[in-house]
Design a protein around this nucleic acid. Sequence first.
DNA 1: GTCGCCAAAATTGTATGCAATCCTGGCGTC
DNA 2: GACGCCAGGATTGCATACAATTTTGGCGAC
Lengths: 244, 244
Amino acid sequence: MGGMGFDLKTSSQPFAPLRGGEDRALAIREQLRDAIIDRRLAPGAKLSEAEVGALFDVSRTVVRAALQMLTFEGLVKAERNRGAFVANPTPEEARQVFNSRRLIEPALALEAARRLTSSDIAAFRQRLALESQLLHERGATARRAEIRASGDFHLLLASVAGNAILARFMEELVARSSLVIALYGRTGASSCGHNEHGDILAALERRDAPEASRLLLRHIDHIEADLDLRVTEGLALRDALGGK
Amino acid sequence: MGGMGFDLKTSSQPFAPLRGGEDRALAIREQLRDAIIDRRLAPGAKLSEAEVGALFDVSRTVVRAALQMLTFEGLVKAERNRGAFVANPTPEEARQVFNSRRLIEPALALEAARRLTSSDIAAFRQRLALESQLLHERGATARRAEIRASGDFHLLLASVAGNAILARFMEELVARSSLVIALYGRTGASSCGHNEHGDILAALERRDAPEASRLLLRHIDHIEADLDLRVTEGLALRDALGGK
DNA sequence: GTCGCCAAAATTGTATGCAATCCTGGCGTC
DNA sequence: GACGCCAGGATTGCATACAATTTTGGCGAC
């Protein structure tokens, strides 16, 4: 029992105002999603319907809808008659996430290089500016925002590529990646040192599709290389303990 | 106000018994999914919560859960305060579905060729036998079963490849493909004449990964080539009319 | 006759109540 | 002392009731 020990509603984001006139389940989904990939909610943590409902001041009906969406995205694992928990991906699942990204993202880069418009470039530049600003900031809040901003770069690339279905897949893959990085990351800063996103954007601007694709593939490799995915068998129990 | 005019529960499948002890929303999702890809539910048809609930003898709560899942899969389109409708993919969406498949499936074939076990082969053979049997049968029921069996081949391939995430993506892509074929298919029998699935399996058994990948890519091309995706702009209104 | 407005009906969005299931703690027995 | 059993509490699964929104049908004015 006992509260979750954090305040979901006062997210670090300036917006996300939990607008009342719109679909509240969507808003709650986003808040929980941010909390999960920011690691404010630890993997394995229980998401009690009543408790989440009390936090957001909605009924369990709405919470259930939000949790079902997150379950479909793979960020939450639901067990019948037991409840919903923040996902706790295994190293094998982590590998599958990155294998999927290695397959999809270079293709997206190829297509994005063809379709890139000047307004797309502006959006990329804005994203990159935010990233580099966060990189130089200190503190846990900046760290969290940095992880999310880094993911947004890949999401923007997917959206520029123009395939809505693959973009949705990428949304899921990026979210799961954030979770995996939080779990298995060594340094924590995935793209520290090199400015790989900037290099990719430069290649895109040059319309050098193969190079953009190649850089992106290596970028994914670098992210995964920063993980510690050694087997550590039979840790299911300890993971559960770590949850709380 | 006018029933849906069909009986969802007496599906053509011999199983799918709507087992009571398990999660009923899952069962309803499957039934509706089958009905959609079998075209017993026309694109654009309204899925009223009360009506579906009456058909399956469950409350709207359960129906809503099922419809939300189908919405996530892209088979149903939900509009706020208006209801849920069977998806009506545009030609552009159809192209995106096949572009996604062209990207993912050849990679799955490569991996499947490496991992194929003898029990996998047996499962493939069983699938193919069912397909060829259905191919020679007459009647709408056999046609529907054939479309589904054909999709199952691709799903089996995805499962053999061993990446659960991509397998889930494929589930969505195959379901959407069935819908697209029902909407835009010319002949209706996508793999008529050639036994492309059989050829792919043969290449897999020979461990000829590149050939299996190549054949699969061409197979997808053939499926898409059978579609009529000419633009027909501004049909959104007529589509809605066609819905009822 | 056509257009616009308004009330009734139908449908979805949300909250809440009850039943079923699972976890927890304590007691009795071996 | 350890194991198994059973009641109490808590949590989810589901159904239902009510509120909000949209659609529909008709009525009146122009």
